[in-house]
């Protein structure tokens, strides 16, 4: 809008500022809570200004556990989450790239049948197939390890479908030029398709990393060994301290730490992310 309307400007700014406050206030409270000690956090009213125990709490979180998850430090849970999220994001991208490549560029019997089979799995998220999937994972001996945490979440119809659409926009002549240049199928995939989908891969990576990071139900189900706890389910466990009151200052510190990696990924890949979602020039 190029028009100058002071009133409209004021209203829209008010709405935006309110929106920011609604989102930012809980984060502020988390930060404030993470910077006080246990005693202050049990008194009312809750503090709204930061206290002086931030570094102390941070150090504690990286060395020891909290509440019901006392056996594993928050640092280790962060590492578990990171490994799981990376395995899921990278695995999903690798598998979807290859399956989209097969579906778009190869003529094999029941090609469309396979495509629709992949597509139908959109209707079957983990929550729906959780018991059979658990059984399979258990039988394969993948309980309580990184494989069990990530593999069942790797197959992705959404990503396959997205890469299929990306590949369909790449002109056939490029494939033909590459064939004349002497590139075999995998060479073409590696040298032409993957670099050309670079921005889409980045955008998808951001989305999938956060998807993996935020997994709650599945890790909760298949990890009984506390050393495999991920941060998102770990926080829940911290609340269930048997005898004592929840250690809010440490829980809030964990929550704060759990927010960081997704933020780093989004901020770091912002440029590629936006280009991946908007760029059409091929």
């Amino acid at each position: 809008m190029i028009e100058k309307r002071p009133l409209a400007n004021a209203i829209s700014h008010t709405v935006l500022i309110l929106g920011v406050l609604v989102v930012a206030f809980p984060i502020w409270v988390t930060f404030v809570a993470a910077s006080h000690d246990a005693v202050r956090m049990t008194q009312v009213p809750l503090p709204l200004l930061p206290g002086g125990h931030f570094w102390e709490n941070l150090k504690y979180a990286f060395s020891k556990g909290v509440g019901n998850a006392r056996e594993i430090s928050v640092g280790m849970m962060l590492l578990n989450s990171l490994i799981m999220a990376m395995m899921i994001a990278v695995g999903k991208i690798a598998i979807s790239l290859l399956s989209a490549f097969a579906i778009v560029y190869f003529r094999f019997p029941f090609r469309m049948g396979f495509f629709w089979m992949i597509f139908i799995t959109l209707m079957l998220p983990v929550e729906v197939r959780i018991i059979p999937t658990y059984k399979v994972v258990a039988d394969l001996g993948m309980l309580d390890n990184y494989w069990g945490l990530s593999i069942p979440l790797i197959a992705s119809a959404t990503a396959t479908f997205m890469f299929r659409q990306v590949f369909l926009t790449i002109p056939d002549e490029l494939l033909e030029a590459a064939r004349i240049d002497g590139a075999g199928p995998m060479r073409f995939f590696k040298d032409i398709l993957v670099p050309m989908s670079r921005t889409n891969i980045a955008a998808l990576f951001v989305i999938l990393f956060i998807y993996g990071w935020n997994q709650y139900l599945w890790p909760l189900l298949i990890t009984t060994d506390k050393s495999m706890y991920t941060i998102v389910m770990g926080i829940k466990n911290m609340l269930e301290a048997a005898e004592e009151a929840p250690e809010w200052h440490l829980i809030m510190m964990s929550a704060l730490l759990a927010m960081l990696p997704p933020i780093v990924v989004v901020v770091g890949m912002q440029k590629l992310f936006i280009r991946g979602l908007t760029e059409t020039e091929k």
Partner: peptide, 17 residues
């Protein structure tokens, strides 16, 4: 690739990256 030919396409088909 083994026919010993080279082809120029209508839309050039240059590798954009």
């Amino acid at each position: 690739k083994d026919r010993d030919i080279a082809m120029v396409f209508q839309n050039y088909a240059l590798y954009p990256h």
